[in-house]
Design a protein around this nucleic acid. Sequence first.
RNA 1: GGUCUCUUCGUCUAGUCUGGUCAGGACGUCAGGUUUUCAUCCUGGUAACAGGGGUUCAAAUCCCCUAGAGACUACCA
Length: 507
Amino acid sequence: MKEVRVRFAPSPTGPLHIGGVRTALYNYLFAKKNGGKMILRIEDTDQTRFVPGAEDYIVKSLDWCGIKFDESDIVGGEYGPYRQSDRKPLYKQYSDELIAKGFAYYAFDTAEELDKYRAEAEAQKKTFIYNAESRKTLRNSLTIAAEEVEKMINEGVPYTVRFKMPENYEVRMHDIIRGDIKVNTNTLDDKVLFKSDGMPTYHLANIVDDHLMKISHVIRGEEWLPSMPLHVLLYQAFGWEAPEFAHLPLLLKPDGNGKLSKRDGDRLGFPVFPLRWVDPKSGEVSSGYRESGYYSEAFINMLALLGWNPGTEQEIFSMEELIQAFSFEHCTKSGARFNVDKTKWFNHEYILKKSKEEVGEEYLQWLETEKGIKADKEYVVKVTGLVKDRINFVKELWDQSFFFFEEPTTYDEVTVKKRWKENSAELMLKAKELINSIEDFSAENIEKVLNEWITSNELGMGLVMNGLRLMLVGAGKGPHIHEILELLGKEEAVKRIDKGVVELSKV
RNA sequence: GGUCUCUUCGUCUAGUCUGGUCAGGACGUCAGGUUUUCAUCCUGGUAACAGGGGUUCAAAUCCCCUAGAGACUACCA
């Protein structure tokens, strides 16, 4: 088998969408699984759609995801340059070659003229296509005399080069995921290969570069399936061996119909981009998975399972495990609806897997930047250890543990109604005295002393514990009371009980 | 409209090639258990072969038709 060389070839027209990340991921997994090379090629042949910062964003995003490239504009490689605008001088000779061989021709129709034809056709409920039939009546080197064509070109009349689609030929193709596909060329049109601005279109540049870069497998989104016949025909016209193709299913909206778009994320409240993106023109900000608190490992794990499965019941995979398990045989053919809940669940699983030290370290940072709290690291790690299993994101830790960092200022109404009885104030004061008298203030000992006191006086576990919880937390939630007491310390606990009794007695 | 692709629980999917286990798992949801509380966690339930014909002793699986969905249909990628 020849060396596996795959490429991810985005256009820097905006931020990289999660569908693009998944395409890059599958390319990467396939390459690494087969000991091959992963190449990043920037397809910026459309200068009108260039967006500043987009290329940099793409590189940074993939890096965050852990998708590494063996060859790119940044890391270099022997098949560069890896940006199509830097390869511009290269393409014209291939366009010329196709014309010389009779596989392409010059077309002089202006964009305005073509727009007019389309509008006219549409008015008659037809579709205008530039094909074997219509090319006979349009302005091109097949209808205009050779000398005239040469003269026009020499005079600088703008032209495009179009592929001369063969008539009534059945193109037989093979897709790794979809199997055999055949299309009759009569349904295809004469695509522009070379634009009047001197740049190739995607189709030409893509085929030339894939050939020159010795790409063995073209792995891309299903939206490219309709142009596969053109690409196969181009390889044939050049006399080149075509790579193998694999067209991945699309990522669909969580609800409704159609493919996932940026708008869905805004509407349903989840990111569609890996990293935060600020549109350079409008200034509009789109949140990213990273900024929303997702671990890149969880994000990648989730994406990998959207359109592929390992054939086993394993769901949690490290990148290395994904590489080992990946194969096209287990890729799905149909589009996959994006699911926010499942995505959150993946992050939850990664929180579970991480140690309290790891998560605590992140929480320590979060506390400082978001709350301006400079806490003791050891303390934060202990707090994190008590509550981290109940959250999906580090930022949710606050809601589960705020009472470890600030005393309650309000008391949850529903809990008060339910747990604060007539004799509660008196009971809490007694409990406070007991707590104040405990020498060994470890959770274990606190639990022992409290339990003994409650049982020997027949006080009722719920009444005491829930009352204390209300005093210490201000709500009816949180870890075990004795754990809270230990971390808070005797002094703070006594203070909170005194305050709570006063506050709740007012009502 | 045309071309191509796709179609199993609400969602992601296993099973289809090589017909034959109550169609399996996960997320969600519901119930129960654990717990001093809220969560987590554990256990259990829920729920699907798009429809119609065939072939066969037997069809999610093979064949045909219908329906639905998606993508593409630019001098954009």
